[in-house]
């Protein structure tokens, strides 16, 4: 409890920051009146707020929340602090779908072709994973199936890049793969929000079972937990949340891995308490990173996924360093 309130306050603050910061020079007063339709706001200001900054901030919230939450759920289920949401191959498959949409030109045909193709990619990955590690597989089968699907999606993505008709097309795909929240519209929000919210709702229900799994699969099963049902909920929930997040924002790395790590001690290491905390923490990290890319190099189009990895990797190293010292 005492962790959730400050995290929620931080997310609110960063959400407001995301609304107020941007290349269009608006004062906070102008921004707010344009957003809420008060008097004195020009049509351009209204457009900037409602069609550019609001969707960007909302997507930061949704994407970050789903990455943090599914990372915490995945680590809890696999009882492995190195697990991350991309482990089951959904991220890679969604990226493949998006790259295919760019390659075939479908992305130019209509605005939502790219995210829809990415969602289709994620759905294919889930089907494959469920087939391989569904009702009867073990935890290890799930990990191995995820690695196989990720590798396959990665290879096919590389193939598409390889076959791209010209360097510009390849560059466009490369940039998309880095992950960004720039230039997204409310349409993207409406497309991504339902699967993300459904997926997150499914993952949040896993808390009790994840706590019981602290004692191992056998003890948890004997306490009335159904690990098979949990595994399917985890796969479907993560796929919906992360697949949709990747479909609209690209592959944003390290959030799902680092955030649960950062918050684990603060919630007393209880997997169920870590779920909401990581959702908030993930949202805060992505919102903060998205503000940072606008502040650091507004003209250079710095990609969000590059920044989260740049910040995330050293943070991760620091955590490893610290845990090494704790063990010594």
């Amino acid at each position: 409890m005492k962790v959730l309130a400050p995290l929620a306050a931080l997310v609110v603050l960063l959400f407001a920051g995301s609304l107020l910061i941007g290349p269009a020079d608006l004062t906070p007063g102008q921004s707010m009146s344009a957003l809420f339709g008060g008097g004195g706001a020009s049509e351009a200001m209204v457009l900037v707020m409602r069609e550019i900054r609001l969707p960007r901030a909302l997507l930061g919230l949704l994407v970050g929340g789903s990455l943090g939450l599914s990372g915490a759920a995945m680590q809890g289920f696999l009882r492995n602090p190195l697990a991350e949401p991309g482990l089951i191959g959904v991220t890679g498959a969604a990226a493949l779908g998006a790259v295919l949409a760019l390659h075939t030109g479908a992305a130019l045909a209509f605005a939502l072709a790219l995210p829809l193709a990415a969602l289709a990619g994620a759905a294919c990955a889930v089907g494959l994973i469920l087939l391989l590690a569904g009702p009867r597989g073990s935890t290890l089968t799930l990990i191995l199936a995820g690695i196989a699907v990720s590798a396959l999606a990665g290879a096919l993505t590389a193939l598409v890049l390889n076959l791209s008709p010209n360097p510009f097309a390849a560059t466009e795909m490369m940039f998309w793969l880095m992950g960004s929240l720039a230039d997204r519209s409310m349409q993207h929000v409406w497309l991504a929000a339902p699967p993300i919210l459904l997926g997150c709702a499914a993952l949040l229900r896993l808390g009790r079972g994840l706590d019981a799994l602290t004692l191992g699969e056998d003890a948890a099963a004997a306490m009335g937990i159904r690990p098979t049902r949990m595994r399917i909920t985890l796969i479907l929930g993560t796929a919906a949340a992360v697949g949709a997040a990747t479909a609209v924002a690209g592959a944003i790395g390290f959030v799902g891995l680092v955030v649960p790590h950062l918050l684990r001690r603060a919630v007393g290491a209880r997997p169920s308490a870590l779920l909401p905390a990581s959702a908030l923490g993930g949202a805060a990290m992505v919102l903060a990173a998205d503000i940072a890319v606008r502040l650091i190099a507004p003209a250079r189009d710095l990609q969000l996924g590059v920044l989260t990895s740049l910040v995330g990797a050293p943070l991760f190293l620091h955590l490893i360093w610290r845990s090494r010292r704790d063990e010594a």
């Binding site: 009882r79 799994l213 602290t214 191992g216 056998d218 003890a219 004997a222 007393g268 290491a269």
Partner: peptide, 15 residues
């Protein structure tokens, strides 16, 4: 019935 498996698993540093 409560079941105490032989493997003494404590996955996370909980109290």
């Amino acid at each position: 019935a409560a079941w105490l498996p032989q493997a003494r698993t404590v996955a996370w540093p909980v109290s």
